[in-house]
Write a protein that binds this DNA or RNA. Structure first.
Lengths: 341, 341
DNA sequence: ATGAAAGCGCTAACAT
DNA sequence: ATGTTAGCGCTTTCAT
C-alpha cells in the first residue's frame, strides 16, 4: 500500500498542511527540525504524491497527448522518441495516439485527450485532415479543449497557433542546389502527392534553386509521385529516356524506385545519373550506392516542440511559427555532371 | 469550463448520487423519468466524467504503461500501434516509455508508471535487462508495484508471470526447413548476439531442422553476428568461400549484408546462393531480389497481450505463457538447390 | 511556525 | 426511488 501525506503527518506528529508545505518546498516558515523529520519519513518510505489527487486540485495532470498519423513511419517514431525523452525529464508522461491518417481519429483523439485533461497536445495532422475544410474542424476541436497545443510537421494555414515545422522548401532547395553545384543543368523532380503540403513545398524549393541558377524551367521534368516506391520506379522509367543527368526524388522510398529503374536499363548511379532523396532513412546508408539525402532534424524539431509547449505553460512569449532547417547527408549517389564537349 | 455531476444534479433537481447512478448504469431503482432527464442534460452538455476524480475513488486510472526498448525499431513501433488501438477500444490510454535498451531506464520506467498508478504494465525488456541477475531486478521491481504486468517478446526465465512471446525457435525452424525442402543440404547460419534470447532460439530452430533432416551438424557453418548489417556482410564474405548453397540470416539487416557480399564476388541470389532472413522488414519487399523472410505475427501478438492483460484485470484464469507462431513470407531469394550430378 | 477546514469531482454505503 | 454523507489524497486560505 502506498503511503499518503496523512500517514506521514501522523508519524511526524504534525498536520497534513505542514507535510504538504515541506514536500512542496513552501516551507519558509517551518522549523528546520520539522522539515528534517518530515523529509526523513517521506524518504524512508519512498513517498510519492498521488498524481490524480494532486491533479484534482491543481488542475494539472503532468501529461502530454501526442497525436501522430503513424508511429510505424520512421520519422514519427523518431519524433515520438525524442519528445518522450524530453518531456520525461520535465516530469511529464506521454499519451500516444495513432490516427492512421484518418480525420475521424484526429478528432476522436483530441476529444479523448481532452477528457483525460492533458496539459498539452502535440499534433501532426492526418493527411485527410490537411485537406480543405477539414483543417477548420481540427482547429475548432483543438480550440474547444482550451488546452495549449502545438502543430507539428504538417501545417494548417492559420497563424494564430503555435507551430513547429520542417522547412521543406529549404530542403527541396538544398537538394537541387547540391545537384546544380555539381554542374547539373537538366534535373528532374519526382514529387510527392501535391495535396500534401510537404510535397508542394519541396517542389517549390526545387523550383527556387532552378530559377536562381538561371536554368530554364521545364515542366516536363517534374512528375507527380505519391511518396511510394512504385511511383518512383514508374516515373524514373519515363524520365530516364529524356535528356537529364540528375533526379531529385522527394523522398527516399521513391529514390529507391529510381535505383530500380536505373538497374533495368543498365544506368549506373552516379556515373550515368545523379540522385538525391529526402528523409535519409536508415536504409539509405546501406544501399550498394549509398544515397545522398536531405535529412530532417528530428532532434532539433523535438526540442523546439518541447520548448514551445513549456513556453505556453509558463505564459512566456514564444515564437509561434518555428521552421527547422533540414541538412544534406552527402553520400555516393551524386557525381559531377559530365561536361558537354 | 467542463460540467460536473454537481452541475447536472442542480439542473435536474436531483442529488449527485442519482446522477452518478444514472450515468453509471446502476439505475435499477431510479424512475424512468429521472433517468431520461439526467441523461438528456448530460448529453446536451457533452458531459464527460473527470478521470482523475473517478480514479481517486475507484483506484483505477484506465491507463496502461508500455515499456519498450526502442520505438524506432519497426517491430516495436508496430507493436505499440496495435496495442494502442486495441486498448483504446477498451477505454484505456497508453503511456509510452522508451528505454533505449538501458536497464536503468527499465527500472525508472516501472517506477514512474507505478507513481502514475497505471492499471497495468506491458514490458519488453532492454537487452541489458535480459542479462543475468538484471532480470531479477526487473522482476522484483515489477512485483513491488503490485500492478498486473505482461512480459512481451523478450523473455525472463520465471514461470510465475504472464508472458506473450514470439516463437523464435519455430521461426528458425521454419526458415531452415524451407531451405531444406528446396533441396539444400549445406546451409549456413548467421546468428544474432548469443546473449539475446531470440538469437539463441532462432539458432536452436535452425539446429532442430538440420538434425530432423538428418543432415550432419557442421559447426563451421554457424557464425555469430550482432543483428547489424556489417556483421552479415562480414560473415557472408567468409561463408561464401565454403561449400554452401544457402544462408539463413537471423534478421533481415544481416541478410542485406549478405546481398552486399554476394554482389562483390558476383554471386547471384538465388541462383548461386539461397537466402532467408528474419523480421520481414518493409524494405525486404522492394529489394532487387525480394527477400524471403520470417515474419513475426505482430497483430496476433498484440491481441494476445491485450487479452492477457484484460484477463488479469478480471481475475479470469489466463494462459500465462503464450507463444506466437511466426510465418514465412516467401519471395524470390530462395531457389531449388542444384542437383549434384 | 503550525493547524483546521474547505474543496477538487466522484463513488458508494447507509439512510429515508 | 432518492438523498445524505463520508471519504479518495492533496492544496491552500485563513486562523491561531
Amino acid at each position: 500500500m502506498k503511503m499518503t501525506i496523512k500517514d506521514i503527518a501522523r508519524e511526524a506528529n504534525v498536520s497534513v498542511t505542514t507535510v504538504s508545505f515541506v514536500l512542496n518546498g513552501k516551507a519558509e516558515k517551518i522549523s528546520a527540525e520539522t522539515i528534517r523529520k518530515v523529509k526523513a519519513i517521506a524518504d524512508r518510505n519512498n513517498y510519492v504524491p498521488n498524481v490524480q489527487a494532486v491533479g484534482l486540485v491543481t488542475r494539472k495532470t503532468k501529461t502530454i497527448g501526442l497525436i501522430i498519423p503513424d508511429i510505424e513511419n520512421m520519422f514519427f517514431s523518431a519524433l515520438a522518441k525524442h519528445i518522450e525523452t524530453a518531456f520525461l525529464s520535465q516530469g511529464y508522461n506521454i499519451f500516444l495516439m495513432n490516427t492512421n491518417d484518418i480525420l475521424a481519429r484526429d478528432l476522436e483523439s483530441i476529444e479523448l485527450l481532452n477528457n483525460r485533461n492533458v496539459d498539452g497536445i502535440i499534433i501532426s495532422l492526418s493527411k485527410e485532415a490537411t485537406q480543405g475544410k477539414n483543417m477548420d474542424k481540427i482547429y475548432t476541436a483543438l480550440k474547444m479543449t482550451e488546452t495549449p497545443f502545438v502543430i507539428v510537421d504538417r501545417d494548417i494555414p492559420r497563424d494564430d497557433c503555435a507551430k513547429v515545422l520542417n522547412d521543406d522548401v529549404f530542403g527541396g532547395y538544398l537538394a537541387t542546389k547540391h545537384l546544380i553545384d555539381r554542374g547539373h543543368m537538366n534535373i528532374a523532380c519526382i514529387t510527392g502527392p501535391m495535396t500534401v503540403s510537404s510535397a508542394a513545398q519541396r517542389l517549390q524549393g526545387y523550383r527556387q534553386a532552378i530559377e536562381e541558377a538561371g536554368i530554364a524551367w521545364n515542366e516536363e521534368l517534374v512528375l507527380e509521385g505519391d511518396y511510394q516506391f512504385e511511383s518512383g520506379y514508374k516515373h524514373a522509367s519515363t524520365l530516364l529516356k529524356k535528356d537529364i543527368t540528375a533526379i531529385f526524388a522527394c523522398n527516399d522510398l521513391m529514390a529507391y524506385g529510381v535505383y530500380r529503374a536505373c538497374l533495368e536499363i543498365d544506368y549506373r548511379v552516379p556515373q550515368d545519373i545523379s540522385l538525391v532523396g529526402f528523409d535519409d532513412l536508415m536504409f539509405s546508408s546501406i544501399l550498394e550506392v549509398p544515397l545522398t539525402s536531405v535529412k530532417q532534424n528530428v532532434v532539433e524539431l523535438s526540442e523546439k516542440i518541447v520548448a514551445t509547449m513549456l513556453g505556453q505553460f509558463n505564459g512566456e512569449p514564444i515564437d509561434m511559427h518555428l521552421m527547422i532547417k533540414p541538412s544534406l547527408t552527402e553520400r555516393s549517389s551524386v557525381a559531377d555532371a559530365k561536361r558537354s564537349v
